[in-house]
Amino acid sequence: MGNQPDGQNLLLTARRVLLEEILPILPDESRYMTMMMANAMGIAARELDAKKRSDLEEEKSLGLFLIEAGVELDQKVDCDHEGMLAELIRQRSIPDRWRQPLAEMLLALTRRKLQISNPKYLSM
């Protein structure tokens, strides 16, 4: 338990100041860089928020998929399931009957990443 306001709150507050108070007084040529800064702060804030809630859940669902697909998992909690999945796909070790669930799982994984890096992209 850290001090309050937490990192997410600080980032979002600083981002709001950047966009609402600093950006309007900056010259045009600084606009692109400032928007990139705001974007980076938004991503970092959403990532902190997601970490608070779902890191373990995400690993669990990926882990469950691998177990159901017949993969023997290292039971360590910090086992890198995404790395293992990438390796299994490269080796073509996931049985073909898991084709559809695998595609769905990869889509879900990618959606979760987009929720952090660019949620607007999901509705484009």
Partner: peptide, 22 residues
């Protein structure tokens, strides 16, 4: 910062790849 943010664009391409393949 631009190079850093380019790295975080990868899920966009992955999403497009999956949708197009499927």
């Amino acid at each position: 910062l631009e190079l850093a943010l380019t790295g975080r664009m990868v899920p966009e391409m992955e999403f497009d790849v999956l949708n197009q393949c499927l």
